[in-house]
Amino acid sequence: MQVTLAIKRFNPESDKPQPHYEEFTVDVEEHFTVLDSLIKVREEVDESLALRCSCRASICGSCAMRVEGHATLACKTKLISVMDGQSKVRIEPMTNQPVIKDLVVDMKPFWDKIRDVEPWLQPQEPEPEDEYIAPNEAMIHLTGVMGCIMCGACVSDCTVLEVDPNFLGPAALAKAYRFVGDPRDDADKHRLKELSKYTGIWDCTRCYECVEVCPKGVAPMDRIMALRDRAIAAGFDGNYGARHTEAFSDLVEHSGWLDELRMIPKTFGMFNPLSLGPLLGMIPIGLRALRRRKLPPIRHKSIPGVKNVRRIFKKVEARK
């Protein structure tokens, strides 16, 4: 069978460097991966096509790129799974990372953020003579996170990084979880305190893209949510993110549904001078909502079955 690869190319050495699409039509076998077809182009059609790849077995993390608009490992993606009856497949470099050439991106920002979470075990002292004793379940659980091959797919498609490049991002936060969740690590408090600051766990918007695109099932967003729980439990609840979470749950417990108007002062804190800015900043948004008749009702009524909702909350509380 034949496939046409529409590859987004970029040559920094051309007179006017400009990203552009170039199409290559090649004969492929049914079992070919996207990587197989790219290697075929590189070996038989255009030796100058730049991409990183090595293991062909989704373990080295070199060949992350965007295929049909989503980040993935080229070696793990069968052509046939993305062709969808079409004969053309769009292949682009990862986003949220500067392109060096063709499908090769600069991953320095990625590694800098990994570095920022102090990615090494800070164990309890004194070191035991033999191994640390740890429950197997905890180790198996961490193996799921350690399965991260640092390919950058989640960072590529992270919707927060798109608007705020300072966000630590899903890969670094999953890495941080790997230590916070490690029964041998003794720096939980310090780590959670740092992670609760701006650029950390509260900046995730829970869009699920990282979970969707992760080729190794690491589910970075779930790890970020677990870090939030641990941060609040450890007492780092004085920030907007933690207060937002608590306000959300308080309001739903009270009336059975979300009271969006009261959510705002509860999150920012009514009498907090530092909150004056953000609170005033909400006014234009409120006015726009009013104009479009989307302002929530001033009088917030409880739903009819609110007692049942409260009972659910009580049960959950009792379980903790």
């Binding site: 090494w120 075990l121 164990p123 070191e127 033999d130 191994e131 640390y132 004793i133 740890a134 429950p135 197997n136 180790m139 198996i140 961490l142 193996t143 350690m146 490690d182 041998r184």
Partner: peptide
């Protein structure tokens, strides 16, 4: 092996929590 464990390798354990 013990040095690697102390560095942070998450070796699978047996039922008592020792290295499996």
């Amino acid at each position: 092996l013990i040095e690697l464990e102390h560095m942070g390798v998450i070796f699978n354990r047996d039922e008592e929590g020792h290295l499996g």
